[in-house]
């Protein structure tokens, strides 16, 4: 836990010091370019790496009734037998984290009638905060397009108005900033205070959390406290996107810390568990239909058949089988020849 926090702080401090010492170009131009290049190349490589290995067997985890007889109702979402069903299952998984939602818990209580009654409720904290985190992240990501595109697309403005719907303060308070911070703290808190999770957590789990907290923290500071000149930042970022970097003069040092942390995230992404973002689409227990009795799934490395054949079997037991009156392919007298 501490090494990962330390590392994130170190990166932040280095970016700060470097910028103050006149390295704005390094942290604001060179690093982002490098990070983007590594991120894209890395992700493509990662997907290629996965795709290189075949899916030898059709192994969906069935979460409901299979398609069978007409009078038995199939659960077409949790046990899909067609591509359409798989798409729906995948959408629910990716957009709503359905499997996490399944986390039901039961509680038994004595009812007034005297008997015992069980009630079931879903243990949903992890699900709620995971969902909040991911959606806030998405919204923040969309909001940032304000800096990359001119004119600002309508959907970005819409996302902003949605985010600032509370209409508090100037600059208008974005809900996502606060929400994502709360969600991140929950996800981190689980790892720290739940003994079970603390035991399984690694550097690789804490690092991205601290990094994201750093990114969100600096972002919030830049908007509300150490306010930076939006126009200058936009010119700078547009310069980056059009491969003609603009001068960094007049932009807060903290901005470069923010940029550096984001670059670190991009650099780290393809080599970490964060690849679950695309990995989930590759997961054979979720992205395959349960139709393996209806359509043959092909295994490219299917080895040749080798087994103890019936002929060998009959050769071994022929006499005894004949005595027992079992039908034979070759009668004992014939086989002896």
């Amino acid at each position: 836990m501490f090494p990962s926090l330390l590392l994130v702080l170190l990166i932040g401090v280095a970016a700060w010091a470097g910028t103050v010492a006149g390295g704005a170009v390094l942290f604001g131009v060179v690093l982002p370019y490098a990070a983007f290049a590594v991120f894209f190349a890395g992700m493509v490589w990662r997907m290629f790496y996965w795709a290189k290995s075949p899916v030898p067997f059709c192994i969906p985890t069935t979460g409901g009734q299979e398609r069978s007889l007409p009078f038995i109702k199939q659960n077409a979402v949790d046990c899909p037998s067609s591509t359409g069903g798989v798409v729906v299952r995948m959408m629910l998984e990716v957009l709503l984290f359905r499997s996490l939602f399944r986390n039901t818990q039961a509680e038994v209580c004595s009812s007034r009638a005297g008997g015992v009654r069980s009630t079931y409720y879903s243990s949903k904290w992890l699900w709620v905060f995971a969902l909040v985190f991911h959606y806030c992240f998405l919204l923040i990501f969309i909001r940032h397009f304000r800096f990359f595109v001119e004119p600002v697309p309508a959907c970005v403005t819409f996302a902003e108005s949605l985010d600032g719907i509370m209409q508090i303060g100037a600059p208008r308070l974005f809900l996502t900033g606060g929400c994502i911070l709360v969600a991140l703290c929950f996800l981190l808190g689980r790892r720290l205070f739940n003994e079970r999770l603390r035991y399984i957590s690694l550097f690789n789990d804490y690092f991205p959390l601290w990094l994201l907290i750093g990114i969100v923290g600096t972002g919030i500071c830049l908007r509300y406290f150490d306010k930076c000149e939006i126009a200058l930042v936009k010119i700078f970022v547009m310069g980056l996107t059009q491969f003609s970097p603009a001068p960094a003069a007049g932009i807060n040092t903290l901005f470069f810390v923010h940029i550096t942390l984001v670059s670190t995230l991009l650099l780290y992404f393809p080599f970490s568990k964060l690849t679950h973002m695309v990995g989930v689409f590759f997961s054979p227990t979720r992205n395959m239909p349960n139709n393996s009795r209806m359509a043959r799934h092909i295994n490219p490395w299917n080895p040749p058949k080798q087994y103890f054949t019936y002929a060998e079997y009959e050769d071994t037991y022929r006499d005894a089988m004949a005595e027992a009156g079992l039908p034979l392919d070759k009668q004992p007298d014939k086989a002896a020849e």
């Binding site: 818990q105 039961a106 509680e107 739940n194 003994e195 079970r196």
Partner: peptide
């Protein structure tokens, strides 16, 4: 084992 007590302590599900 220490790592698992958190779980037996917090969950009240008689089946879980």
């Amino acid at each position: 084992p220490l790592e698992t007590t958190g779980f037996v302590r917090t969950s009240s599900d008689p089946f879980g």
